[in-house]
Amino acid sequence: MAQQTAVLVALVVLTAAVALVWRRRQGQVRVGAARAVASTAWHEDLAALGAAPGARATFLQFSAPVCAACRSTARTLAALAGPDVAHVEVDATEHLDLVRRAQVLRTPTVIVLDAAGAEVARASGAMTPDQARAALDAAAPTDLPSGRNA
């Protein structure tokens, strides 16, 4: 019994550790690190998906049917989308080639593209509105879209 108790305690500790690490990494915006990956022709991929890029930035979200966090992230990003910011949601399971090329490992993964269609940031897991805004700032620093007449 003592041995079983020790096993259960170890399991609880492992659960807590995984939970803490996972929660800290949820939606964490990684800027720049991904730039080397495949900042190739994202605009072409968007066109192939039948989607138009945003004039300022694009949230390219990879989702899956079995993904609850994808729904909340989609709501968050859709709320930020507008005339200059596009939110494009892709079913990862239907675009596995793109998923491999973009090195997407889990859903939701959000790739933030700048106006030129280059990847500037990405995040995996449920995104909060604050994290989404931070990602947007990484793509297009918050100066006025109309110009720099300061």
Binding site: T15, V18, A19, W22, R23, F62, A64, V66, C67, A68, A92, T93, L96, V99, R100, V104, L105, R106, T107
Partner: peptide
């Protein structure tokens, strides 16, 4: 993990499995 933080382990691994 599911009960405490809402992490669905199977869902996290689903895309890797499909890949």
């Amino acid at each position: 993990l599911n009960a405490t933080v809402g992490l669905c382990l199977g869902c996290e691994l689903y895309l890797l499995g499909r890949r």
